[in-house]
Write a protein that binds this DNA or RNA. Structure first.
Lengths: 217, 217
DNA sequence: CTAAGAAGTGAATCATGATTCAGTTTTTAA
DNA sequence: TTAAAAACTGAATCATGATTCACTTCTTAG
């Protein structure tokens, strides 16, 4: 017996892994999953292609990890909106949904990659986990709302899944093919739909076009 | 001497060519240029892969032709808007720009493919011709407007190119990466910008959100 | 310092999809 | 009916990018 992994090595590997993910994420933002090529990625990380396979068993596994890495970033943004202490739960949820949607529309290549780009089955499976994570987050907020009486009694797990499904649908539409409505219309309608669904009262959201026409006058 | 191409054969070849383009266009709408595979396309057309090469010298040439075919469809839509006899030129141009933008947002995979998907150089060159065709169309309308006095005197060629550039920019932004604004905001602002640019007077467009909130009340 | 055990390397191999081409079928004019 | 000239075919070949693996370098415990 001689070599044994030390914390120094563990940390170094952690950094290398992070480097790979960061560079892959940049490629994802530039041209989607199809833009991630093992040789290119290795070069950008200053590693040999073989080394990538010491960190990820296949390109599919790598793409899945990138997917999850990107998702965590988005999740954190949404989580931040859900934690605004000075606002009520319904408003926080509306903010979170809007943030989710706006970020998707602001980085559409990445959003398209995360939501609609045709990918291998393993990445599709990650998509399901991704929605699950969002649902969990929203479910916590809903539970909070129920406790503070700003939301009526309800099954928070069910509500949160419905909520994620509705907002994703509103984004998949505009980003993919077969929708009949327009992006912003779909988003505001969805947020309104979601909020009305969980508050069980009418809910009006501020329309970005109103801000625009105000500025221009 | 014996075989000589007859009109019967010429027509049959024309139909085959059209079949290829139609099937390729469907693939384009489904998953962009990367979704067009020679073997798949040949199968869908009930042809051998080699036959595709009798009609198009390479996949690149085929993609270019598909690009142009798709473009012609879009051009015809825009042209139809520009020909509405009962409306003034400025309104017709606004309608045409909106149509262009809306269609792009309604078929974003195709729009992304036509406007932003990374493609071979020959297809990029087709993009320039595509913009040129739009410019020509708008230039004709502008000239008409000048004659009927609904538009002030101006260089219609220059104006039309500026107009196409502005609206494309407003679409490339939302569909690609680095923009700061939202799709509908970008479109309405661009159409407003374009109309104000060519009419030299304030111009307000109807905001889709207003229709929405009206419906929902 | 040394040898076991990893980690890292990159050229060789494999898989996928574009392209070619030798052979087959179709079409035409005489 | 026939032979020239296409048109068509699809298996073979080529190109690109993922994956492997024999080898080298690094790290650690003794």
């Amino acid at each position: 017996m001689a070599y044994r992994e030390t914390s120094r090595i563990r940390e170094r590997k952690q950094i290398t892994r992070q480097t790979i993910l960061t560079n892959a994420l940049r490629l994802l933002n530039e041209s989607g999953f199809s833009g991630i090529q093992m040789a290119t990625l290795a070069r950008q990380c200053q590693l040999a292609t073989g080394t990538l396979y010491r960190y990820f068993s296949s390109k599919e596994a790598l793409c899945t990890a990138v997917f999850e890495h990107a998702t965590i970033i988005e999740i954190n943004r949404v989580a931040a909106q859900l934690q605004q202490a000075h606002k009520g739960v319904p408003e926080r949820i509306a903010d979170a949904l809007m943030t989710f949607a706006k970020r998707a529309l602001r980085a559409p290549v990445a959003a398209w990659a995360l939501i609609a780009e045709p990918v291998e089955p393993a990445v599709s499976a990650a998509r399901l986990r991704y929605r699950e994570q969002y649902a969990t987050l929203f479910a916590q907020a809903i539970d909070e709302g129920i406790v503070e009486r700003s939301l009526p009694q309800q099954n928070s797990t069910l509500s949160s899944h419905a909520l994620v499904g509705a907002i994703a649908e509103a984004l998949i539409g505009p980003l993919a093919q077969q929708n009949q409505y327009q992006p912003w219309q779909a988003i505001s309608a969805s947020v309104q739909f979601c909020l009305q669904a969980i508050t069980a009262t009418p809910y009006t959201i501020i329309c970005p076009q109103q801000e625009l026409s105000h500025e221009q006058r």
